[in-house]
Design a protein around this nucleic acid. Structure first.
Lengths: 152, 152
DNA sequence: AATGTAGGTTCTGATTCGCAACTTATATTG
DNA sequence: CAATATAAGTTGCGAATCAGAACCTACATT
């Protein structure tokens, strides 16, 4: 029980991730950004979000370094919100959620498929892999203390 | 622009996933379940969540088929909440978020590492792979209509 | 029978959400 | 140049949600 408790208390990274991305709309804004949207009014009409909330979320995403805010040079009314490397690194998490939603969701199936542009074939389901790339199932996982891991 | 709009409108599975998992605490409850917790009071003290919210979230997770609620036979006061296959399928998404949080979070790094129990080496970062398992970068992805994908 | 425990529900205030209207800085148009 | 339009916010306000505490109920233990 002590160990269990310790595992929970350990800041496993999830609370940090959820601090930003756990808020309503954050993931949908991120998806829109991945889809190429970058302006306030694009997000607004594309997502059906309230202006106030969009303003708040964009500010937080910028504050956390997930989006970058750059006023446009040629039209200084416009501001472009673009994904930073930190934001781009959320793609696996977003796709994993998305694939889960497609697998179990009741929603209408999209006609668009994410493919490898090289061979135009759909990407593999996001999954768990060993250090050598071999897929692993949940049953084959366990928690170890850092000092007990095999040699890297 | 029409195509962009269409991509956003398409129910890509993310909204469905977020309907349940987008709510506060849902992911942390899920993590606790993956860590072996199964009883109300365990979640309660393990997470520091309010009773009311925990009650509400557990009900929703059960309602959406992510957890299963089973009153215990030997002590019928106790109720076990356990992950269904649908819930277990959220592991990649949770790990992807967790790894992102570890990579960029400010939180204290956990001493516990998730390993392949066969060789005791840490799992690979969750990533995007082509149908044949080859890793792909964001730049190599694109959206295609289902009718345009390469032969499976 | 009395007490304790697991799992909730109810009551209260503080936050957050969402809609609509207003503001400010820049562009465009007559 | 004046008038109007547009992009990106901010403000105000009612509705929903959150969090903490106390309360409740079914069961189990002494």
């Amino acid at each position: 029980m002590g160990k269990l408790r310790e595992m929970l208390d350990a800041d496993c990274g999830l609370p940090a991730a959820l601090e930003v991305m756990g808020e309503r709309w954050s993931f949908l804004i991120l998806r829109a950004a991945f889809n190429g949207l970058s302006h306030f009014e694009e997000f607004l009409s594309g997502l059906g979000i309230a202006r106030k909330i969009l303003s708040n979320r964009l500010a937080k995403l910028v504050e956390h370094g997930i989006l970058e805010r750059t006023p446009q040079a040629d039209d200084r009314r416009r501001v472009a919100y673009t994904l930073t490397p930190k934001g781009l690194d959320l793609l696996p998490a977003m796709l994993a959620l998305r694939q889960w939603g497609v697998k179990y969701g009741l929603g209408v199936q999209s006609d668009l498929v994410l493919v490898d542009c090289r061979d135009h074939r759909p990407i593999a389901p996001i999954g768990i892999h060993a250090h050598d790339g071999r897929p692993i199932a949940y049953a084959d996982l366990k928690w170890l203390y850092r000092t007990d891991v095999g040699e890297p």
